[in-house]
């Protein structure tokens, strides 16, 4: 059965198994490789995307769940209207603070933080710690926190 959804505003229809995780549909079927594979069991957050605005770990979301929904991936996080060269203020803060090291976790990190800030625009450090459980093996956490503070306490 074909499954249809919008990714970053663009309509896609896929004829794939219903239980294929959204992650692999995005990466291998649509070629959107910005969303990363880290663990496959919802334990690391590298694959975080937003489904209808909610952060979800796409490795553990069957593609059929996303049928009819609007998905945002890291490739769609930029805001073309922003006066920061197309990047969202969050991405800009990430560059200012030089957050990424290897960078592999950062797509998921940014998608998770972006979703958190939509829900809670001024989280305390504790609220950030409770909500952002993404693993960063490079230990970029101090700068993740600093960049979040920059955008929320400006």
């Amino acid at each position: 059965m074909p499954i249809s959804f919008k990714v970053n505003g663009k309509e896609h229809t896929l004829d794939v198994e219903e239980d294929m995780p959204l992650l692999w549909a995005l990466r291998d079927e649509l070629g959107l490789t910005g969303t990363k594979f880290g663990c496959g069991i919802a334990a690391c957050g590298a694959c975080t995307v937003q489904v209808d605005g909610t952060a979800m770990r796409s490795c553990s979301v069957p593609v059929s769940y996303a049928d009819g929904s609007e998905i945002t991936t890291i490739e769609g996080l930029a805001d073309p209207d922003a006066d920061t060269g197309g990047l969202s203020p969050l991405q800009q803060a990430w560059i200012e603070r030089q957050v990424p090291q290897c960078g592999y976790c950062q797509s998921g990190m940014l998608m998770a933080v972006d979703a958190l800030l939509k829900e809670n625009p001024q989280p305390t450090d504790e609220e950030v710690g409770a909500a952002i459980t993404n693993i960063c093996r490079c230990g970029s956490y101090p700068r993740v926190l600093a960049a979040i503070r920059d955008v929320t306490r400006a």
Binding site: G34, F37, L77, L87, Q91, I95, V99, Y104, S107
Partner: peptide
């Protein structure tokens, strides 16, 4: 760093 912008917009290409 030169490599940071590509690591915040999903354009950086890793081995995988």
């Amino acid at each position: 760093r030169f490599d940071v912008p590509g690591k915040v917009d999903g354009s950086g290409t890793y081995g995988i």
